[in-house]
Amino acid sequence: MKITGGCHCGAVRYEVAMDELPLTYACHCLDCQTASSSAFGLHALMPEETLQISGRLTSYRYGNAGVASNHRLCAECHTRIYNTTNAAPGMVVLRAGTLDASSMIEPCAHIWVKRKQPWLQLPIDMPQWPESPTPEAFAQALARSPVTGRAARMPCN
């Protein structure tokens, strides 16, 4: 399976060197709600070397409480493509909605649910945390996820 995606205007394209769609989680924090103009952000955590980008990117840095994120977006239409964070060295957080096959993604975990929209109902058996889980708890939950039915292929730290 060839995993590809890109920005809204088509100036940035990417390919993910993985055999399957990456594990995806939903973040309900206020930053993700604002940045996505939606109820949550969909993110796929993967090793940095698996993502190959073509096209011109611009970036901005955002951080709080000692955790800094560097966001990469299309230089033309400003669609956010991915970010890196010092909380997960060597990993990228891909904006899963930019995948060409985004309709095939189903989140396997939810974080920052204390900020989720009150009208949104989450599956009861889905791993979820009020805020951000520890990397160890997140990796364990992904390995047991009812959505994936498979072991997590990547570390979360």
Rank of each mutant, 00 (worst) to 15 (best):
P133M: 11
Q117V: 11
M126E: 11
L122M: 00
W129Q: 13
W119Y: 15
H110C: 02
A151F: 03
Q128G: 15
V113P: 04
A137M: 08
D125N: 14
P135K: 09
H110L: 00
K114W: 02
R144D: 07
P135G: 12
R144A: 15
R144W: 05
P123E: 00
T134H: 12
V113R: 03
D125P: 04
P130M: 07
E131T: 14
P130T: 08
R144C: 08
I111P: 11
I111A: 06
V113K: 05
A139M: 07
P146N: 12
F138T: 11
P130K: 00
Q128V: 15
V147N: 06
P118V: 12
P118R: 00
G149I: 05
S145H: 01
T148W: 08
W119F: 13
Q121V: 07
T134E: 11
I124Q: 03
T148F: 05
A137E: 15
I124T: 03
I124A: 09
P118G: 10
M126T: 12
K114G: 09
V113T: 12
L120G: 07
T148I: 13
I124M: 04
V147G: 13
W119Q: 01
R150E: 03
W119C: 12
I124Y: 00
P123H: 03
D125R: 09
R144I: 05
A143D: 14
V147Y: 10
D125W: 08
A141Q: 06
Q140Y: 11
A151D: 01
R115V: 02
W129T: 14
S145A: 09
E131N: 13
Q121N: 00
W119S: 07
R144E: 12
I124V: 02
Q117P: 05
A151E: 05
A137H: 10
R150P: 01
T148R: 04
S145T: 04
R144T: 07
R115K: 06
P127L: 10
L142C: 02
W119H: 15
E136R: 11
T148H: 01
A137Y: 06
P127A: 13
E131A: 15
W112Q: 00
P135M: 13
W129L: 13
Q117T: 15
P146C: 14
M126D: 02
A139W: 04
L120K: 07
R115M: 04
S145M: 06
W112K: 01
M126I: 09
S132I: 10
Q140H: 10
L120M: 14
Q128L: 14
A151I: 06
D125M: 04
T134I: 04
P123A: 08
Q121R: 08
R144V: 00
A143M: 00
W129C: 12
P127K: 06
R115S: 05
G149V: 11
W129N: 07
K114T: 08
Q117S: 14
Q117D: 11
A141L: 10
I124P: 02
A141W: 02
V147I: 15
R150A: 02
A141D: 12
A151K: 04
P118L: 05
Q140V: 05
